[in-house]
Nucleic acid binder design. Structure first.
Lengths: 328, 328
DNA sequence: AATAGAGCTGAAAAGGTTTTCAGTTTTCTG
DNA sequence: CAGAAAACTGAAAACCTTTTCAGCTCTATT
């Protein structure tokens, strides 16, 4: 049986309450404090977090619900979230939904049972749509994706703007037929699609878009098809890092080079995008900022629950590389 | 105030014990069971995991302690661990140590306070060395790295063999001066270094090795130096994915091409290694397998604690690509 | 028909901590 | 130096479950 606060109390000749107070750094006479501290050291006492949480009603745990930690965007995000969490003396429970609404509701239920302090959450469009019907008893901050307009704290990229920037960039380089390959599950992909479409229309260009499950394999399949079409576009935009990876893979299979055979641009400034060929033009997201902002919003929400929901919108940054150079 | 098991009991006209039994799927008369179930539905009851854990002494939580989730090896590993965990109805608490022994001990302590069911752990060499002096009251399975020989369950790659394979491969392609760039914190890097050195000696080649903090930035700096030396080697081996990334980046900065200017080979078959230039030769690790094996070992250890420690050693697979072709 | 056993249920204890409450000691104020 | 306030401490309640124990109702066996 492991040593509890009671054993420490006996060893130090004080009451359990006093030990608890020493642990919580509350006022207790130096002499007693010292006795307790050595007792703790001697007994090797470690607090039982379950008991502590049960009594204090603070779980000191935050949930992080993302589609897939292997998506580099979410990898980096998770790291930022964890750093902030552990600084605030909180644990992080990580959940991968695979963009599957069933798993999402299961995890949200789990968060409830865990009595988490708060949740950072990148929902699918499907679940996001009914987000205000669900009523969580913990604060939620959406990241990367938004819910019903203005109802929830969220931190997202200005996706329309970012897409428009890519179109503008490609257009200014002389490309006219610009196709887009977008994810089919997130509000983010949808926003990027809108931004793309608007920007194309603004320039009297004809948008053409495809939607695909947001993972590299599915993207490879789709890209293969697009790239081998007779009316292959002059330029192709990929709506996130995994899709971009799929496109790059398809191009390699087909022996195509950017920008000679087709121009390429995408999202997420992963290191490899700078190394592949002579570099792929991308929109860089301030991922770590997004994570930190989300945690800040979460903590502030916890402090003042009645505050009106806030949306933090950050801007992407165009990183021009060779894949979008004017051909020939 | 949230609804507890008591409220459900009252609503169903039974005792809390009965509700608990319904929840745990123990024998209770169908009629009562149904009454309880509708009461649960009506009240929207969610069990309180802290209370449950406190009483039952089962945390159903496993800890995952890794250097950095952004290292793609550990990203994939974490995903495998989580999948297995959630299938077994367990949560995962994720910890990044940044190869920092202080953070390691802090997290190990946390695991103790959390009363975790078990831990999957990739220790630094420093902590690994004193692993048998520490006495955990939870089972630990080491991954990717080993502790004092044969004292702990662990799942690792046959690192010596893998390194030797790379040397053999490069040598058979005609390279003689083969340098190695290794991480400086893990037993794994050390083993890969040993394998490299032995294989070089076996072939009467002179080994030359450098050690560096296992992250891309540090590797870039080191690689830059190696690559701009007058006596630059004919081939360079990188001991993990991040270091390989650093090497690739340095080469690009310096305008060097593989295999024309220098041959390159490394570890971890990340997708980009197949896309960069005309592909980088790597040793592929069965990462998902490693994760699953680790979880299997962990569960078996929990079931039969007195079993002798087991070491599972998996083989890497050489993926030959263009970066190690015989130069022009 | 009596008895053993199985199945089912509820009361109450237990799990390890924090927190409240009340009481005691110390310090401060005038 | 008296009295008030502040600081400190311990006993006991509370947090929400699961589990033990004992009792009760059936069924099955002899």
């Amino acid at each position: 049986m492991s040593v509890g606060i009671k054993d420490v109390a006996i060893a130090a000749g004080v009451s359990p309450a006093t030990v608890s107070r020493v642990l919580a750094n509350r006022h207790v006479k130096p002499e007693l404090r010292e006795r307790v501290e050595t007792a703790i050291r001697l007994t090797g006492y470690r607090p039982n977090l379950s008991a502590r949480r049960l009594r204090s009603q603070h779980s000191n745990t935050i949930g992080l619900i993302v589609p897939d930690i292997r998506n580099p965007f979410f990898t980096t995000l998770s790291r930022a979230v964890e750093d902030a969490a552990y600084k605030a003396n909180m644990r992080v429970v990580l959940c991968n939904t695979d963009e599957n609404p069933t798993r999402e509701t299961m995890y949200l239920r789990l968060m409830q049972e865990e009595r988490v302090t708060g949740v950072i959450y990148a929902p699918t469009r499907e679940t996001a749509a009914q987000l205000d019907r669900l009523n969580f008893d913990f604060p939620v901050v959406l990241v990367d994706r938004h819910g019903p307009a203005g109802k929830h704290d969220s931190v997202i990229l200005d996706n329309r703007q970012a897409s428009a920037t890519l179109v503008e960039h490609l257009h200014s380089r002389g490309f006219k037929s610009i196709e887009g390959l977008f994810g089919n599950t997130s509000s983010t992909a949808r926003d990027r699609f809108s931004g793309y479409t608007e920007a194309m229309n603004d320039r009297a260009l004809t948008p053409r878009a495809d939607f695909v499950a947001p993972n590299a394999d599915a993207a490879t399949v789709a890209a293969r098809q697009i790239l081998s079409r007779k009316d292959r576009p002059e330029a192709l935009i990929a709506s996130n890092g995994l899709i971009l990876l799929g496109v790059a893979q398809a191009m390699q299979e087909l022996g195509l080079q950017a920008p000679d055979d087709i121009a390429i641009a995408g999202f997420d400034n992963e290191i490899w995008t700078g190394l592949i060929g002579s570099g792929i033009t991308v929109i860089e997201q301030p991922v770590a900022d997004i994570g930190h902002s989300a945690m800040r919003l979460l903590f502030e929400r916890i402090e003042t629950p009645e505050m009106a929901p806030r949306v933090v919108m950050l801007s992407g940054k165009l990183i021009e590389r060779n894949s979008s150079k004017r051909p020939g």
